[in-house]
């Protein structure tokens, strides 16, 4: 069983700040972290490997310092990791990103055939969720998005049983392997990594590939050049007029509010205190 997990380094959006004057990202205090959804993807791979045995490879694309997220993945329990880093990849949108990653996956697959690719549902700095399915299409394997449970992995039949989240409820899907899963956060809880994993990760030196390490690459499909979408403009949306601010003492304001709400009292179902 060979599972590849695609991970991304993202700025911690909890801490990120926008400079209100220039509308640009204030990167000073935003530490880079492993995309939280991807952490769940790695964790799921670890859970599967516990049952099936095998190898977990993580793959990431980003600047050289993105080796940090590969090390983080090793802490969670991955066996090895590859970082794709090259200026040729810079400025990629989701289409160019899935192209570059699929080329790296091709090489990984030649070395050790891949049974399962797992990605996070989306990255918190882009919120698109498009790269995972894009990779699946390029590898010509089925994408299964919004996965909330990997119910069964059947190595003999080469199939997986998956619960996929729907707008209301879920569906149970059986898919051939190899296939690609994108996982929701609720799929698992990240375990507290054991000390030996921490030491292994601290020691680990990720495999670094540049564009020259990939075969049959069409360079026009990489980076900015290979990206059909561009950011046209950034703007803070015009502030709407806003409503009425109530005035007076707190209890006066509360009374005014109650009057307003009483017009809609049919909407309230006052509960019994007993």
């Amino acid at each position: 069983m060979h599972i590849v997990v695609c991970v991304k380094q993202v700025p911690d959006t909890k801490i990120i700040k926008i400079n209100p004057k220039t509308n640009t990202l204030d990167r000073r205090s935003a530490p880079a972290i492993l995309n939280p959804y991807d952490a769940h993807a790695v964790q799921e791979a670890v859970k599967i490997k516990r049952k099936t045995g095998g190898t977990i490879t993580v793959l990431s694309m980003g600047p050289p310092q993105a080796t940090a997220v590969i090390k983080k993945s090793i802490e969670i329990g991955a066996d090895r990791g590859v970082l794709l880093t090259d200026r040729a990849f810079a400025g990629a949108d989701t289409l160019a990103t899935s192209y570059a990653l699929s080329k790296a996956l091709e090489r990984i697959n030649m070395d050790l055939p891949i049974d399962l690719v797992i990605c996070g549902k989306h990255a918190i700095d882009g919120d698109t969720g498009q790269v995972g399915p894009g990779i699946a299409r390029r590898m010509d394997i089925p994408p299964i998005t919004s996965v909330i449970e990997v119910t069964e992995v059947n190595q003999e039949e080469k199939t997986v049983l998956i619960k996929r989240k729907l707008t209301s409820g879920y569906e149970l899907i059986q898919s051939e392997m190899p296939c690609l899963l994108t996982v929701e956060k609720e799929i698992n809880d990240i375990e507290y990594s054991p000390m030996p994993n921490m030491i292994k990760a601290a020691r680990y030196e990720p495999i670094i590939w540049s564009v020259n390490d990939l075969e049959n690459v069409d360079r026009t499909q990489l980076g900015l050049k290979g990206s059909p979408t561009i950011v046209g403009k950034m703007f803070t949306p015009p502030r709407p007029e806003g409503g009425k601010k109530l005035e007076g003492s707190v209890s006066e304001q509360v009374s005014q509010l109650m009057e307003i709400l009483m017009e809609k009292k049919d909407l309230f179902t006052l509960t019994s205190s007993r």
């Binding site: 959006t13 909890k14 990120i16 926008i18 509308n23 990202l25 918190i124 700095d125 059909p228 979408t229 561009i230 950011v231 046209g232 403009k233 950034m234 703007f235 803070t236 949306p237």
Partner: peptide, 13 residues
């Protein structure tokens, strides 16, 4: 975009 405090217009030319 960027954690949601700003809007970005995306074009596909």
């Amino acid at each position: 975009a960027f954690g949601g405090n700003i809007m970005a217009t995306i074009l596909c030319k």
